[in-house]
Design a protein around this nucleic acid. Sequence first.
DNA 1: GCCAACGTTGGC
DNA 2: GCCAACGTTGGC
Length: 141
Amino acid sequence: MNYWLFKSEPFKFSFDMLKEKGKAGTQWDGVRNYAARNNMKAMQIGDLGFFYHSNEGLNIVGIAEVCALAHHDTTTDDPRWECVDIRAVRDVPTPPTLADIKNNPKLSEMALVRLGRLSVQPVTPEEWKEVCRMGGLNPAP
DNA sequence: GCCAACGTTGGC
DNA sequence: GCCAACGTTGGC
C-alpha cells in the first residue's frame, strides 16, 4: 500500500464533487505531466491519497482511494496519457493548510513543499501519519 | 496580478 | 543532445 496526494483547483473539481461521484469514483483525467503520470501508473487498487485544494483553500480536505489502475485518459487521443480512477473515502475533520505543513519540521521534505507544481505526488508513510494527525484523523487510516 | 519554478519545445 | 525561449502552474 502506498500513499499519494492529488491536487485540484476546487472550482474545477472539488472534493465535494468527488463525493458526489460515489463509489464508482471518477477518472483523474487531464494530467499532462510525465512525473505525475508515472506516479499514477505506480498506483495499486486500494492505495490512499490526500485530496488537496490548490488556488483556493490551499488545504488537504479529504482522503481518496484508488479504485481503478492506470488506463488511457479518455479526454485525449494521445496514447501517452493515462490516469487512474479514484473515489472519495472520507473528509479530513480539520483540514491542514499549506502554511501548517510548511510550518511543521517533520514535513519539510514533503513533495507539496518541495515540488509545489507537481499535481500527483507520492507521500511517505511518515508524512501520511503526520498529516492525518494534524487533520484530526488519529489513528491514520 | 505578479512572479518564481519548472516542464516542454524547437533550433542548432 | 544541448540550451534558450516560452508556456503553465500555483503561491502570494
